[in-house]
Amino acid sequence: MKIDFSLNGKKVSIDTLPEKRLIDVIREDFGLMTTKNACYSGECGSCTVQLEGRIVPACQIPIFTVRAKRIVTIEGFMGTEKYLDIINAFNDIKCIPCPFCFTGKILAVDSLIDNHRTPDTSDIMALLSDHSCSCTSVSKFIEGVRMAYHNREFRGELLK
């Protein structure tokens, strides 16, 4: 089946089995290996991508459902100002999640701070509960998300 969709801002097309998982398409067909896969059951958060601005576990998305949709992976998100808001915030407070889980967490944080006026602690805890890697200090992570929010607010991005 031929499926057209937008991947990291570019229109792409793929001829594949309709039930193939989005994570496999991203990694195998497009070679975007920074998006990770660990559990294949939608629980661990390592394969998080943005689908139409919403975060989803790519291992639970059959490729036919993304027809004509916008997908953003960590590769497409890296280098954007939004990405720097988050990276700089976590860097400043020396909160360093393990590199395996952080890619998924970054996209989830972006979605959180875009969709909440001021993300409160329970919002951030809910985010963390979708990412089962317990590699980092929770209070530092909360602080990092808040600082990322302030970085974005400072740039005026949230007012748009």
Binding site: C39, T121, M125, S129, H131, S134, V138
Partner: peptide, 14 residues
């Protein structure tokens, strides 16, 4: 049944 752990939903003071 899921086998992976989840973070506590509620933060606590440490």
């Amino acid at each position: 049944i899921p086998l992976t752990p989840v973070q506590p939903q509620n933060p606590f003071a440490v």
